[in-house]
Simulated assay, not measured.
Amino acid sequence: MTDSVTPASDPKVLLQVENVFAGYVPGLDILQGINLKLLAGEIIAIIGPNGAGKSTLAKAICGLLSPHTGTIHWQGQNIAGLKPNEIVTLGVCYVPQLANVFRSLTVEENLEMGAFIRDIPLGDLKSKIFTTFPRLADRRRQQAGTLSGGERQMLAMGRAMMLEPALLILDEPSAALSPILVDDILAKIREINTQGTAIILVEQNARKALAMSDRGYVLDSGKDRFEGPGPQLLDDPNVGALYLGGHAATQSRPDP
């Protein structure tokens, strides 16, 4: 499958990944010709089995991994091979699954670290984050290492939002959280999106991710196996049988 629209032909395309091969060991590519596009204002979900290349794709987009071949265009500029700090300045922020906060710093200090490249007053930005995440406001002087898992995830997202990115890439934001906290985190992600930030959501909870996304990509063995509107993929019997443990509309157990 190949996305035919290019950044030059459609100004609504923020991100275009074309035929990307990438991996961590020379000669052993995890991504095997991935294609993906993101439109302005979208949430797209990236799902698939363990080892499919979901996190590898996220790292390639944000510069933590350089593709061996292929292109990654951000707003018309090929960013493949740029360093992460260069990509951040273009408006792309990545929140990893693990080690995503400074545990010894307070909540407020973490937010300030998130804006380290900005030479502007931070009061309004912090107030905006505290409005989005009221729990963080209540714990602003608390060390991040003492927060709950859900609160640390909120802080990690809030710290990234201090840069007011055009794109937020979230890698497994609901991992290891209780079902109630999963719903809370996903609701916050939707809220951030409605404020104008595009989202790439790499998520283990495939059903919920697809249900809330404009479009989804299903990866398998480093290839983009299926692509389409999120709810449509959720109801696709082929996707359900292969990746959701049966037809999605009739299955409610969590992903293995």
Rank of each mutant, 00 (worst) to 15 (best):
Leu38Tyr: 04
Val92Tyr: 03
Thr194Ser: 14
Ser9Asp: 15
Ile47Asp: 01
Arg139Val: 02
Glu227Leu: 00
Ile117Arg: 07
Pro179Thr: 09
Ala144Met: 12
Asp235Asn: 15
Arg139Gly: 02
Gln77Ser: 13
Ser213Asp: 08
Leu155Cys: 07
Val17Cys: 06
Ile72Gln: 02
Ser66Leu: 00
Gly196Asn: 12
Arg215Ile: 03
Glu108Ala: 09
Asp184Gln: 15
Arg152Gly: 02
Lys126Phe: 03
Ser252Pro: 00
Phe226Ile: 09
Leu201Trp: 04
Lys83Gln: 14
Leu210Met: 12
Pro49Tyr: 02
Ala99Tyr: 07
Asp236Val: 05
Lys83His: 13
Ala187Lys: 15
Leu65Thr: 08
Gln143Met: 14
Thr131Ser: 15
Leu28Glu: 08
Gly48Asp: 10
Val13Cys: 07
Gly51Asp: 09
Thr250Phe: 11
Gly230Ser: 11
Gly145Tyr: 09
Pro256Trp: 07
Ala166Glu: 11
Ile169Lys: 01
Leu38Cys: 04
Leu136Trp: 02
Gly246Pro: 08
Ala211Tyr: 00
Leu98Trp: 00
Leu36Gly: 04
Asp224Leu: 04
Asn35Gln: 06
Ile189Cys: 05
Gln32Glu: 14
Lys83Tyr: 10
Glu108Leu: 07
Ser178Val: 05
Ile169Gly: 02
Asp183His: 12
Ala198Thr: 07
Gly222Ser: 08
Met162Trp: 06
Lys126Tyr: 05
Gly158Leu: 08
Leu244Ala: 08
Gly158Pro: 11
Arg139Thr: 02
Asn78Gln: 03
Ile192Tyr: 01
Leu201Asp: 05
Gly222Thr: 10
Lys188Cys: 15
Gly246Arg: 13
Met1Cys: 05
Met1Ile: 10
Ala187Trp: 07
Pro7His: 11
Leu136Gly: 08
Gly149Ile: 10
Ala176Gly: 07
Thr194Phe: 00
Ile200Cys: 10
Thr2Ala: 13
Ser9His: 13
Met212Trp: 02
Glu172Arg: 05
Thr197Met: 08
Glu112Asn: 12
Asn193Thr: 05
Asp183Ile: 00
Glu164Tyr: 00
Met161Gly: 08
Ile43Pro: 04
Ser9Met: 10
Glu172Gln: 06
Ile169His: 01
Leu57Ser: 03
Phe21Tyr: 15
Gly81Leu: 05
Thr146Ala: 14
Pro173Val: 09
Glu86Val: 05
Asp138Arg: 14
Arg152Trp: 02
Ile30His: 00
